[in-house]
Amino acid sequence: MLFSVILWLKIMYYEKQINIKESEKLLKELDLKIPKGVDYTVGIFDGNNMIGTGSISGDILKGIGVREDYQGLGIMAKIISNLLIKCSEDNKKNIFVYTKYSEKKNFVHLGFKEIAQVKYRVSLLEKAEYGIEEFKINLLEKYVNNKSNVCIVMNCNPFTLGHLNLIEKAAKENEHVFVIILEEDLSSFPFEIRYNLVKENTKHLSNVDVIKGGKYVISSLVFPSYFTKECEHIELYARLDLNIFLNHIANALSIKKRYVGKEPYCQVTSIYNKIMKKVLPKGGVDVVEVERFNIDGIAVSASKVRQLIRDNKIAETKKYVPSKTFEYLVSEEAYHVIERVRKNKSRH
């Protein structure tokens, strides 16, 4: 009887919401990174001692750890349950988690599905109602064909003659082209505008489909480096992104080649391209690198166009963008976007 009371007391761990600061000590002890941009943190306590913690940042679970001498007691499940309930209260339906490759089984047991991995290093898992499987089914329903397909992934911030040139080249050399546009709204030009400009400017090409990239193509989830321009872990993120592309998207759309423009300016993109050339051919997708489109010896790029906008030389952009883009740039509708470009000093 006494024994069972002691046992009962022993397993009465309790959970409560804490400030991320309080979990720092435990995370340091476990040699884990302290997460940034956290919205919510939970701590699991045994008496006054914190023995486990976990946080939510947007729709990514971060900073999850259990003190070593308490591992294997189901505390992890307690933390994840708490975080999932919180996510559900906030109406977040797709939840993601990055974890060490060796720890991924902990999450798989709790109903997470792996969407990409870099062998022996890191794994990205999701628990989603409309996850990558649904994304693939959606692609299959809309775009499946029996042709030999190639793909170009673009941000088009905004759409220039360089982009058009690359698409036209791919369309001429191949049966069918999928142009995937990054859906993340972290660029100066909003996604809908970028997407529509690509659609309108490629109307004359009958063998081109323009596709929304969703959460799985160079988004802040799978490749945050592209938006922050931080070089930390860039190789790892690039590999994850490319693995998703290879295993899910290229697979679903039966893509045989990926076209890419040479990147003379942006360090992050050029590292990404370098890794792409290593990773994709191994999975049966060839990489075709195309020289930048030149006008009077100047490489045409979206950053060049944004620089001209910043310098108050919108009229000069006419040389570098197709007619539809120029029409948009000088339209009244573009006013707010132009203002945003002017204020935004960074590359995006």
Partner: peptide
Amino acid sequence: IAIVGSLESNDVMITIEPLENKLEIIIE
């Protein structure tokens, strides 16, 4: 939308949501 339970061993986590015209049960 309601969510109950937990993912601890020997427990179950159940999410229930409004849906029109049918009863859909997904089991993991």
